[in-house]
Amino acid sequence: MLRNTQTSFGWLSQALHWSMALLLSGLFVMGLYMTSLNYYDPWYHSLPWWHKSFGLLTFFLLLIRTIWTLLNSHPKSPSTHKTWEKNLARAMQKLFYALIFLIALSGYLFATAKGKGIEFFNGFVIPAPSQTIEENYVDLIANAHEIMAILLAILVVLHALAALKHHLIDKDQTLTRMLGNKPRI
């Protein structure tokens, strides 16, 4: 089913969830790796280019996902979930969206600080803001980009561990709601 149901996430929600999971993990590893390369590395220029293109793609998916989440009802939480778990899960979802948004925004701002736009693969160029940014702020924004990405990575690991805990220890449907589309009771 396209839309979320009472018991499970629809295929679009699932596709957005897993593609962003893959993209964000890739971007994180790529970001750490590309900034460690030396000047003569063959990937010195290409990796940042891919990083920016995939970063933009992730941002576009986030916009679609935010709209889609607002248009859809959330599947009912399994009855085994305690109230604090539900509240925490909701807060985490908002925090994830906010963090991804801010990481993308900060990346965009410091890459375009001198007025040069960002290429989206070989398709089109996202223009830079009309205002250039002062050096102090550029460095601050760049540091924030990295710190927020590390924070997001930690939260993603906790998120995955929590999902596995629900699946393996509690044996509830928390994880399977996000996997496949079989109707569940």
Partner: peptide, 23 residues
């Protein structure tokens, strides 16, 4: 030193960093 300008945002950031000027 932080006013270093090579007309390239990322390179300038790199030049300001600890690899180069460490401003």
């Amino acid at each position: 030193t932080k006013s270093v300008d090579s007309n390239h945002a990322e390179r300038d950031k790199h030049l300001r960093g600890s690899d180069f000027l460490d401003v």
